[in-house]
């Protein structure tokens, strides 16, 4: 054991720009991924509440299935299988798709709890006003359900950010992809992987704190 590793500042400095480029890719993937997750998750949540069992039941199982299987395998599957069906999209888009679908199963749960938190009376009042299903959802239910779930969505945003590095294994040069490249190029792995870890801490700790503050602030509102 040799705990006196000589940290190579020069090397670290040299690879930092690449890592930051990678971090930017990571952030972009998170951004698009969470947007997809929020849209798909809402669709899941609404389908799951459907009164038609032929819709709600399969939706529930699909959600359960996607949520309890590894994102990595889903990612590989999309990456290697889609081209077989003539769907050619780049690795980044594939990654965003996998992230979005996987996390939609989490966000759908979040929406569900938000929707269930809207009092029954709101549905009844909408019926009494003879609102269409569409209007009831878009004007009455969701405007009340969504604000309360924003902090939970924030938590999943942070969680997703930490899973983006999986995209490195379908050839995306995110922050880990860059770190990996530096490691194999120079046979010096301590600096790149340590820096990758530090970059994660730098982004995710403040984000978590921000989300927590959002939670506190929303909890204080009546």
């Amino acid at each position: 054991m040799d705990l006196t590793y000589e940290w190579d500042w020069e090397y670290a400095w040299e690879i930092l720009p690449d890592l930051l480029d990678g971090l930017w890719i990571t952030i972009q993937a998170t951004f698009f991924g969470i947007i997809l997750a929020m849209i798909l998750g809402l669709a899941f949540a609404i389908l799951r509440r459907s009164e038609v069992r032929a819709i709600s039941w399969p939706t529930a199982w699909v959600i359960e299935f996607i949520r309890s299987t590894p994102l990595l395998v889903q990612l590989f599957m999309l990456f290697y299988v889609l081209p077989h069906y003539g769907i050619r999209i780049d690795a980044f888009t594939t990654g965003v798709l996998a992230l979005g679908i996987h996390y939609a199963t989490y966000t759908s749960e979040v929406y569900r709890s938000g929707i269930e938190g809207v009092p029954r009376g709101q549905w009844e009042a909408s019926t009494a006003l003879n609102l269409s299903t569409m209007t009831t959802w878009s004007r009455v239910i969701l405007p009340q359900a969504i604000p309360v779930v924003i902090p939970s969505l924030g938590n999943y945003l942070v969680a997703m950010f930490k899973e983006v590095p999986l995209l490195a294994f379908i050839t995306v040069f995110d922050v880990l992809g860059e770190g990996k490249a530096a490691c194999t190029r120079n046979f010096q792995c301590v600096e790149p992987y340590t820096l990758v870890g530090v970059l994660f801490l730098i982004v995710s700790i403040p984000s978590s704190i921000l989300v927590r503050q959002l939670e506190v602030r929303l909890a204080r509102q009546p």
Binding site: M1, D2, L3, Y5, F161, K162, E163, P165, L166, L176, G179, K180, C183, Q188, C189, V190, Y193, T194, V196, G197, F200, L201, S204, I205, S208
Partner: peptide, 25 residues
């Protein structure tokens, strides 16, 4: 807690598997 929740599992794994050997472990 903050360290392990703040970094990503895959990054931790890579650090332990690929960087730790440089410390002789």
């Amino acid at each position: 807690v903050d360290f392990f929740r703040g970094t990503s599992a895959i990054v931790q794994l890579f650090w332990i598997f690929f960087a730790l050997p440089f410390f002789g472990i």
